[in-house]
Write a protein that binds this DNA or RNA. Structure first.
Lengths: 216, 216
DNA sequence: CTGAAACATGAACCAGTATTCAACTACGGT
DNA sequence: ACCGTAGTTGAATACTGGTTCATGTTTCAG
C-alpha cells in the first residue's frame, strides 16, 4: 500500500516492519507542505463530491500541484481515501472520548459525549461523509472504525456497571445501539440541519439513554 | 426520469400526470417477466459489488438479456438504482410497521419491531446495502427514506405519549435516535454477524429504550 | 560548492463501461 | 393470415479519469 505517515501527536503508526523500499513519507519540509496541501484538498474534494465523483486531477488542482505529485505521496486514489478514514477515525475518538471520560459519572458523560459528537460533526461535515462512504470503498476500514469504538465503549460501560452506575445487560449490544443513535443524530442534527443546538439534542438523547421512554 | 411502475400491492405510484410519451412499464407478460429478471439481477449485482463497481452489462448478463433490453425498462443506471431504493424503502416499512402496530402497547411494539427489522435485514442483505449506499448515489432518495420513517415514527410516539405510555420529550429527536439504533444493530447483528438471535438483540435494545441504563 | 536524493511536472496511455441505435423477432388483436 | 406495437439484440460510440513515466528542478548533507 504505502502511504505517508499521517499520525499526528502520538498515535503509533503500526508500520509492521515495512521494507521501506518505497516509503512515501516526505523527507523535507517542502514535501511535508505539499502533502498537507494534498490532504486538505482531498478532504474537500471527497467531502464535496464523494469518492467516485472525486477526481485525482481535481484534488491536485485544488492543492495547487501537478497530478504526478499526488502519486509521489500516495499509491492510489483508494490509498489516500483510506488514509483519510484512519486519520479522521482517530480524530473522532480523540475529540469525543476525553469528553466522556472527563464527566463525573457515566450518565452525564453520555450527554456531554453526544453534544461533543454533534459539535464535531458540524465542524467536520466532509470527514463525516468520508467515514460513512468508507463502508463502500474500504469496508475493512469502516468495520475497524466502528468495531474499535464499540469495543472501547462496551468496555467503559462494563466498568460503569462495576461501579454500580448502570444496570446489567449485554454491553456490546448497548454500545452499538448508542453508537447508532449518535451517528444518526449527528447526521440529522449535525449535517442536515443545524437549527437545534447540540446540547438540546444531546439532552433528549441522553435522557433516553438514561431513563428510557417509560413514564416515571 | 421514466421507470417502470414497481408498486406492488397498493402503494400508489405518484406519477404526477406523466405525458406517457415514453412509459417504460411493460405491457405484456413477457415484458413483465423480463423486468422482473432485470430487477432481481440488479439487486444481486448492486448488492454484491456496490453501485459503482456494478456494471449494466453484468446485470443484463445475470438477467439473461441483452444490454439493450435493460434500456427498454430503465433510462439509466441511476434510474434502476433509485427504483430499487424506493421499492425496498416500502418493503421495510411494510414489514416492520405492522409488527409495531400489532403489539398491545408501544414498549412491547418497540421490541417486536427491532426483532422484525433485524430479521428482515438478514433476509435482505443486498437491499440493506442498497439503501445505505443511496446516501451517496441518490441522496434525495436516502433523505426521503429516513425522513419519512422518522416522521411516522415520531407521530406514533406522540400518540403513545397521549395514551400515557411514554414520557414527554422531543419526539423527532427520539425517533432519529431509535432509528439509528435499529440501523446499527441491523448492520452489526444482521449483516455482519448472525451468531445472536434477533430476539436476543431486540430484548437488550428494547430494554434500553424502555428503561435506559440507569440502575433501578 | 556539488552531486545525489527528493520532489515536481503534465502529456499520454489505457481500461472500463454507460448509453445509443438500427436491424430483427415475437405477440396479440382483428 | 396480417400488421402494428412491444420487446430484443449487441456491436459501436463516446467519454471519463486513474495511473505511468521521462524529463526537469529543488533541497541539503558533506
Amino acid at each position: 500500500m504505502n502511504s505517508p505517515d499521517l499520525s499526528q501527536n502520538g498515535h503509533a503508526s503500526v508500520d509492521s516492519a515495512a521494507p521501506a523500499t518505497t516509503d512515501k513519507t516526505p523527507r523535507t519540509s517542502r514535501g511535508r507542505k505539499t502533502l498537507r496541501a494534498i490532504l486538505d484538498a482531498a478532504v474537500e474534494e471527497f467531502g464535496a463530491r464523494g469518492y467516485h465523483e472525486a477526481a485525482i486531477s481535481r484534488i491536485a488542482q485544488r492543492a495547487g500541484v501537478a497530478i504526478g505529485s499526488f502519486y509521489t505521496y500516495f499509491d492510489s486514489k483508494e490509498a489516500i481515501f483510506r488514509a483519510l478514514v484512519a486519520d479522521m477515525s482517530a480524530q473522532v475518538r480523540d475529540t469525543v472520548g476525553p469528553v466522556i471520560l472527563a464527566a463525573p459519572d457515566r450518565l452525564s458523560g453520555e450527554r456531554a459525549g453526544i453534544a461533543a459528537f454533534i459539535g464535531f460533526v458540524r465542524e467536520n461535515k466532509a470527514l463525516y461523509r468520508i467515514i460513512d462512504e468508507s463502508a463502500f470503498v474500504a469496508e475493512d476500514a469502516y468495520r475497524k472504525h466502528y468495531l474499535d469504538i464499540a469495543q472501547g465503549y462496551a468496555a467503559s460501560l462494563t466498568e460503569a456497571h462495576g461501579r454500580g452506575e448502570i444496570s446489567d445487560a449485554d454491553m456490546e449490544v448497548r454500545a452499538w445501539a448508542i453508537m447508532g443513535m449518535n451517528v444518526f443524530l449527528g447526521l440529522r442534527f449535525g449535517v442536515w440541519d443545524e437549527s437545534q443546538t447540540p446540547d438540546a439534542v444531546a439532552a433528549v438523547a441522553a435522557d433516553l439513554i438514561s431513563d428510557g421512554l417509560r413514564p416515571r
